[in-house]
Structure formats: structure tokens, C-alpha cells
Amino acid sequence: MADVQRQLDRVVSLMRAQQPVPAIGTVGLRSARFREGYSPESVTALFDNIAEWQRQLNIRHEVNDVDSAEATAPENGRLNWSRQQQVWVREITFQSTRFGSAYETDQVDDFLDNVLRAMGNGESLPDIKSAQFHMARAGRGGYDAAAVDHFLDQLERIRPL
């Protein structure tokens, strides 16, 4: 428990100083004997939530920076998507689910490939508002629809540099 608290104290300190919070690994945490500690799953989930919070904060700052600066197209007419924006799209993962609302994984993956292709070519993104995915068949599994929709809402707000 002391190892986890030390990590949390570090996170709070960085947040108060308005510094970025790096990803926190659980590899260096000692396992508790006799079940006196937190469950490893809970600690991992907490650290994952902190990493997601930092990623969301980075995106918000990037969007605000772009909105506050005057947007001018480069001379070659290509849009300048940042490496961070492209990595964000490339590394997004959605939880698969067999129950509830889920989108066909292939369709979502194909759409994200098109987004990455447009970014890499310095083009406008595909029309996000008109993106439609079939619901996954019951029991077959697919990407959690709410998570995909949330990501698309965020994707719609980013702008090239």
C-alpha cells in the first residue's frame, strides 16, 4: 500500500505544479503478503485512469492552442497534423464487448485507417459526423459503441497545426 501511496503522492504533486503526469507502471510495486494490500487489478485500473486523464488533458491543450492561434494553411496546401495527433489515433484502443451496444470492429478499424491516411497525406479528415458503423451481432462481439462515439466526438474537435 505504501508503494501505491508514494506513486499517488507523486501524481498529486505533479498535478498541483501543473506538470504533465507520465505513465505510471505497476512493475516496480511490491506485492503485499497475506492480502494486506490493494488488488493489482484496482491499482492498474487507477493508473490507467490517470494516464487517460493526462492524455485527455494533452488533447484539450492542443485543441486550445490551435484555436487560439491564427490558422493559416501552409504554402503547399497540405494540412499539418502533429505527430502526437497521429499517434493518438493510431494507439486508441476500444474495449471489446459481446453484450450491449457494440460496433463491428472491422468497420471502426477501417474508418480509423482512413483518418490516419488523411493525416499522413496532409488532408482533411473524413466526415466524422456521417461515420456510421453496423452494430455487432449479439454474441459476436465488437467495440463498445459509447467509447467509439466518445472518441469520435474528440476527434471531431481536433484541428491541424
Results as ranks from 00 to 15, higher is better:
G28M: 02
N114R: 14
D149L: 05
D67R: 13
G139A: 07
D48M: 08
Y143A: 10
M1I: 11
A17D: 15
I50H: 07
V63L: 06
V89E: 00
A145H: 03
Q54C: 10
V4C: 07
E91G: 04
D113P: 04
Y103K: 07
G100C: 07
D67Q: 12
E41G: 11
W53L: 09
P22R: 13
D3P: 10
E70Q: 14
Q54A: 10
R117M: 04
R157E: 13
Q154E: 09
Q19C: 10
E52T: 11
V148C: 10
F47L: 15
Q95F: 06
Q7D: 05
T105P: 05
A145T: 04
E104I: 15
G100L: 12
A32Y: 00
R33K: 15
F34H: 11
V11S: 09
D113T: 11
Q56M: 15
V66Q: 09
P74H: 09
V87M: 05
S96W: 00
S39R: 14
Q54Y: 03
R16S: 11
E52I: 08
Q54E: 15
W81G: 14
F151S: 05
Q95G: 08
R33T: 13
A45S: 09
S130Y: 02
L79S: 01
S31E: 10
S42A: 15
R78I: 00
A118C: 14
G100N: 13
H134K: 12
E62C: 06
Q84D: 11
A45L: 12
E62I: 04
M119D: 05
P126T: 11
Q86T: 00
L46C: 14
M135Y: 02
E104T: 15
R78L: 06
A118T: 07
T105N: 05
D109K: 12
A32V: 07
